[in-house]
């Protein structure tokens, strides 16, 4: 093995006893206290078809995108907020926290380091949730296809609903992709969260294959 004697982890996740300012002592188990590691469940759509259609229409018409720029393609989100393309007239808004957003906008190449954060953010989003991947890099690696540190296919790690090709795609193409996503949701085909829960083991195995410092529970909503 290499001579590199890396410190084990940047944050200590071992069990330990902590003394509070009042003098009490109590045990802290960060893996359980800081995260919840319950496995994801499949949440089937409502049984009443017209109701589900209405819900899906609402979901499609009010898209909250997670403002997490994961790559160079994220720069194409900014014109969409501005007066030139103005996505808010189509019901597209940006939220700064994964808890409140429903669409994950993967902007371009995802390095392994970013992928770890992508997986965590994705799992923290509340279902039903969708992934919107732009740029060639998320599809087949794009110009980074032979990079030692950039993933090639995003759909092996999280379920992707819509791909937009281009390097980078124009904002018009992204608006068109949002239209496609809306159509998918309205037709009831946007069940990425359930797909993730169903094939959880497979996705996890793929993620763990490349993320070397797995210092979190398997699922940390």
């Amino acid at each position: 093995m290499a001579k590199m004697n890396y410190r084990k982890r940047l944050i200590d996740f071992d069990k330990r006893t902590v003394e509070s300012p009042d003098g009490e002592t109590f045990e802290v188990n960060p893996m359980q206290d800081y995260y919840c590691d319950a496995k994801p469940k499949v949440h089937p759509p409502s049984k009443i078809a017209p109701l589900e259609t209405f819900y899906n229409w609402c979901r499609a018409e009010s898209i909250f995108i997670l403002g997490f720029g994961t790559g160079c393609g994220a720069i194409e989100m900014r014109p969409l907020m501005g007066p030139m393309y103005d996505a808010s007239r189509f019901g597209v808004f940006w939220r700064p926290t994964p808890r409140q957003s429903t669409v994950f906008f993967i902007g371009g190449y995802a390095s392994v380091k970013t992928l770890k954060r992508i997986v965590r953010s994705y799992e923290q989003m509340q279902g039903p949730k969708w992934v919107f991947a732009v740029c060639s890099c998320t599809i087949n690696g794009g110009m980074y296809f032979d990079s030692y540190n950039t993933i090639n296919r995003l759909d092996h790690y999280i379920p992707v609903d819509v791909y937009v090709t281009g390097c980078m795609p124009r904002p018009e193409a992204i608006l068109d992709g949002i239209d496609t996503l809306k159509k998918r949701i309205k037709e009831g085909r946007g069940e990425g969260a359930n797909k993730y829960a169903k094939n959880f083991e497979w996705y996890k195995a793929n993620q763990k294959k490349i993320i070397k410092d797995w210092d979190m529970p398997d699922y940390n909503w």
Partner: peptide
């Protein structure tokens, strides 16, 4: 707000959809 920023802006009924959309989320913590 949108017109001040020379945008077209959201639809007038958008806040209704936003609220209903949050009510019908399937999971919550």
């Amino acid at each position: 707000y949108a017109r001040v920023a020379t945008r077209i802006g959201l639809r007038i009924y958008q806040p209704y959809i936003n609220i209903i959309r949050q009510w019908v989320t399937r999971t919550s913590i």
